[in-house]
C-alpha cells in the first residue's frame, strides 16, 4: 500500500514538472509545414498529409508496411496453438445485415481511397475500413475463406510491400530511391495506394481472423 502511495506521489510530481516545462516552452513555428506547402504542387497530389506520407516521406511508409507485415508473421508463428472454435450458426438477421452492410463498406472504402488525393482519407483509412468489413464477414459466415490457400493469402498480404519496393528500385534508374519522376508522380501514388489498401486490409483482417479461425 505504501509502495503504491509513493508511486502516485512521484507520478504527480513528474506530471507537475512536465506541465511546467510545456508551459514555458517557446511557441511553435511551423517550419516543416511551410516547406510542404511550398512543394505541394510537385508532389502529384493536392492533400498535404497524403503528399507527406506517399511522396516526401515515402520511405517511412514503406518501413511501416514492413513493420505491420512483420507483426503478422510473428502472429502466424505463435497463433496455431491458441485458436478456438467460435460459436456461430446460420442466422437470418446476420445474413441480411451483412448483405446490406458489406457493399456500403466496400463503396465507402473505395471513396476514401480516391478522396485521399485531394482531402482527408487515403490508403490507411480505407484499408482499416475494408479490414473491418472482412472481419464482420468472417464473423457472420465462418466457413467462407476456409478453402483459400495459405500461399495465395501470404502473397496477397506481401503484395503491397513488394510493389512499393519494386517502384523504389525502378526509380533508382534516374534519381534517388522513391523519388518519383514529376510527370508520373500522380499515377504512381494512386497505384501504390490501391495495392497498399488491399494488402493492408488483408493484413489487418488476419490480425483478427488468425485468432478465431477453427482448425478443421
Amino acid at each position: 500500500m505504501l509502495y503504491k502511495g509513493v508511486l502516485w506521489c512521484m507520478a504527480a510530481l513528474f506530471l507537475g514538472m512536465l506541465f511546467f516545462m510545456v508551459a514555458t516552452m517557446p511557441p511553435f513555428s511551423p517550419k516543416l509545414d511551410t516547406l510542404v506547402q511550398a512543394d505541394l504542387a510537385m508532389s502529384g497530389v493536392s492533400h498535404d498529409v497524403t503528399a507527406v506520407l506517399l511522396n516526401f516521406r515515402a520511405l517511412d511508409t514503406l518501413l511501416e508496411v514492413g513493420v505491420v507485415l512483420l507483426a503478422l508473421m510473428g502472429i502466424q508463428v505463435v497463433s496455431p496453438h491458441f485458436r478456438y472454435k467460435p460459436y456461430t450458426e446460420a442466422n437470418t438477421i446476420t445474413d441480411i445485415y451483412i448483405a446490406i452492410l458489406l457493399p456500403v463498406i466496400i463503396l465507402s472504402a473505395l471513396y476514401l481511397l480516391l478522396a485521399g488525393s485531394y482531402k482527408s482519407g487515403g490508403a490507411f483509412v480505407a484499408s482499416a475500413l475494408l479490414a473491418g468489413g472482412i472481419i464482420i464477414l468472417k464473423l457472420t459466415k465462418p466457413k467462407l475463406f476456409v478453402s483459400l490457400e495459405k500461399l495465395h493469402l501470404r502473397f496477397l498480404s506481401a503484395l503491397g510491400l513488394l510493389f512499393f519496393v519494386g517502384i523504389g528500385v525502378l526509380t533508382l534508374i534516374e534519381g534517388l530511391f522513391l523519388q518519383y519522376p514529376l510527370s508520373y508522380a500522380s499515377t504512381l501514388i494512386l497505384m501504390i495506394e490501391t495495392l497498399l489498401m488491399f494488402s493492408l486490409a488483408i493484413i489487418l483482417a488476419s490480425f483478427f481472423i488468425n485468432a478465431v479461425q477453427d482448425l478443421e
Binding site: L32, V36, D60, G74, F208, A211
Partner: peptide, 26 residues
C-alpha cells in the same frame, strides 16, 4: 501535416504492437 503523417504511421504501428502483444499474452 508532417505531425499528422507521423501520428498516422504511429497509429498503424500501435495496432501491430497490440495485436502481436495480445497473441503473446494468449
Amino acid at each position: 501535416s508532417v505531425a499528422t503523417a507521423l501520428v498516422l504511421t504511429g497509429l498503424v504501428v500501435t495496432l501491430g504492437v497490440s495485436a502481436f502483444g495480445l497473441m503473446l499474452i494468449r
